[in-house]
């Protein structure tokens, strides 16, 4: 439930956020708005949730909003967000928008998709 609330306002301010923070991108750590759409509690869903929450905790501590949506529970959101495949992680911020499709098993690709670099 909380996830839904955090998701919507973040989307509205997306364009504003881009212009105001573009300059500061190099210094200030980027803020992340993520939405993970899963279908029920099957293996792929749980895998994806585990990987994403793990990455967020590790790399984006304090600067991310993650919403997890079960499309079975909220089918209208699947339509509105153009979800076809599950699981799908939508990276709403930072722009550009990205959709990560799959159970997030390919960690390298997930890292690239989220613009994360391993900490040195």
């Amino acid at each position: 439930m909380t996830s839904k609330k955090t998701g919507m306002p973040a989307r509205k301010s997306a364009s504003k956020a881009r212009s105001s923070r573009a300059a500061a991108r190099t210094k200030v750590p980027q803020e992340y708005v993520l939405k993970l759409y899963v279908a029920g509690v099957d293996r792929k869903s749980t895998d994806a949730i585990r990987v994403i929450t793990g990455l967020c905790d590790e790399y984006l501590q304090g600067r991310y909003k993650l919403a997890i949506v079960d499309i079975y529970q909220q089918p209208m959101l699947a339509r509105g967000e153009q979800i076809i495949a599950a699981p799908t992680l939508i990276r709403k911020l930072p722009l550009p928008l990205k959709r990560l499709v799959g159970n997030m098993a390919d960690l390298d690709k997930v890292m690239v998709g989220l613009d994360l670099r391993p900490m040195l």
Binding site: P75, A86, K109
Partner: peptide
């Protein structure tokens, strides 16, 4: 009516997936 938009450039494959999104929308 439902309009399915797929933007190839936005999509990054990260492993196994299914089409439950489409199923849910179609079923709905």
């Amino acid at each position: 009516m439902d309009e399915v938009q797929i933007e190839r450039s936005e999509i990054q494959a990260t492993g196994e997936y299914d089409l439950e999104g489409l199923f849910v929308r179609l079923g709905g």
